[in-house]
Amino acid sequence: MSQYIFHAILFALGFLGTYFMIPLFKSMLVNGNVIRPNYKNEMIPVGMGIVFLPMIIINSIILGFVTLNNIWFVSSSNYNLNIVWLLCLALYIFSMMAMFFAGALDDLIGNRNVSGLKGHFKSLFKGELTTGGFKALFGGFVGLVVSVCISSSIVDIIVNTLIIALSTNLMNLFDLRPGRAIKVYLVIMIPIYITLTGYTKVFPLLILPNVLAYFNTDLKARGMMGDTGSNVLGISIGVLMALGYGIKVRLAWLVFLILMHLITEKFSLTKIIEKNRVLKFIDNLGR
């Protein structure tokens, strides 16, 4: 089996499996009264990002099985390389599963009176733990766990931890209008898939086709993926950046992340987009 055929199989399974599961999860959330008003004050199910989960697990099982049976993309003659590959796969899956949990908690019991990292940490210093504060701390520790396992120096650990933690929150900054966060995600993740090399190249296919299958539901405001989805999208980018790129690319990405967080703490991202004709056109496209 060639690399391209295997990638096509994973893509098709992820897309079709997720597409057919969307009505099931939507019905489950509505019946459980997990609904919230969107920006138009329409009541729609929140936490729809959970629909990404089944095919992440199923495709991970397939990928792990193929790996253990020494297919082309892992060296059948290098036991250490196989172990490293499986460790990276396990860390990638672990990070997404962990942020599913934190995001779902925020979607179910989160208090919307506090927003922004600054606001959540202010509440924490006052002795009040918000779900957003928990999510930020939890995401930081998940990033640290992954970074310790994949980094070769203290500097690498610091850089990778910050990349993973801030990337996780990046999608939250954009997830304020239907389809916006997924558009940004695709602009970032598709080039990552194209430019990744080696054993990590297949990793985006554990989630990218799932997101594409759900995209129209989010775009047409039939459901909100919520933090359950946006956290997972963000950390999937962060871990891949930490795993697949050299220090120069990672530092450039970290600078971008820091600037984005500083800008959004002071200015409304929605207002910035609405004042720019090109960004506004892209933002409204497909709604």
Rank of each mutant, 00 (worst) to 15 (best):
Gly110Trp: 05
Val114Lys: 07
Gly133Arg: 03
Cys149Tyr: 10
Gly179Trp: 04
Met99Lys: 09
Ile150Glu: 05
Asn216Thr: 11
Lys122Cys: 09
Ile109Ser: 04
Gly103Ile: 01
Phe138Met: 05
Asp175Gly: 01
Tyr185Ile: 05
Leu208Ile: 10
Leu124Ala: 06
Met189Pro: 06
Lys122Ala: 10
Pro191Arg: 03
Pro178Cys: 08
Asn172Phe: 01
Asn210Leu: 00
Ile154Gln: 04
Asn78Arg: 10
Thr130Tyr: 08
Ala104Arg: 12
Tyr193Lys: 01
Ala181Leu: 08
Thr161Cys: 11
Ile194Asp: 00
Leu129Ser: 06
Leu173Trp: 06
Tyr214Lys: 02
Tyr92Phe: 15
Ala136Lys: 03
Ile158Phe: 06
Met96Arg: 04
Lys135Gln: 05
Phe125Cys: 07
Tyr92Glu: 10
Leu117His: 03
Cys149Asn: 15
Ala136Gln: 06
Phe101Leu: 15
Ser153Asp: 09
Lys135Leu: 02
Leu170Cys: 13
Pro178Met: 06
Ser147Asp: 08
Asn111Pro: 10
Ile188Cys: 14
Arg177Thr: 12
Cys88Arg: 15
Lys135Asp: 05
His120Lys: 12
Ala136Gly: 06
Asn169Gly: 10
Leu206Cys: 09
Thr195Ser: 15
Ala104Ser: 11
Ser123Asp: 09
Ile182Met: 15
Asp107Val: 08
Thr197Trp: 00
Pro204Arg: 06
Leu206Pro: 11
Glu128Asn: 14
Arg177Phe: 13
Ser153Pro: 02
Val84Arg: 14
Val114Cys: 11
Tyr185Leu: 01
Thr131Trp: 00
Thr217Ala: 12
Tyr79Thr: 13
Leu205His: 06
Pro209Trp: 10
Tyr193Gly: 03
Phe94Gly: 03
Lys201Met: 03
Ser76Asn: 10
Asn82Met: 13
Gly179Gln: 01
Val202Ser: 04
Ile164Ala: 00
Val187Trp: 08
Ser167Phe: 00
Ala98His: 02
Gly103Glu: 08
Tyr185Ser: 05
Ser76Thr: 04
Arg112Asn: 14
Leu89Asp: 07
Ser95Arg: 09
Gly133Trp: 05
Pro204Cys: 10
Gly132Leu: 12
Gly139Ser: 13
Ser77Met: 12
Val145Ile: 15
Gly140Trp: 00
Lys201His: 09
Ile163Arg: 01
Tyr185Glu: 05
Leu81Asn: 11
Leu173Thr: 14
Ile188Leu: 15
Cys88Ile: 06
Met96Cys: 07
Asp156Asn: 14
Thr217Lys: 05
Ile190Thr: 10
Arg112Pro: 14
Leu196Val: 12
Phe125Thr: 14
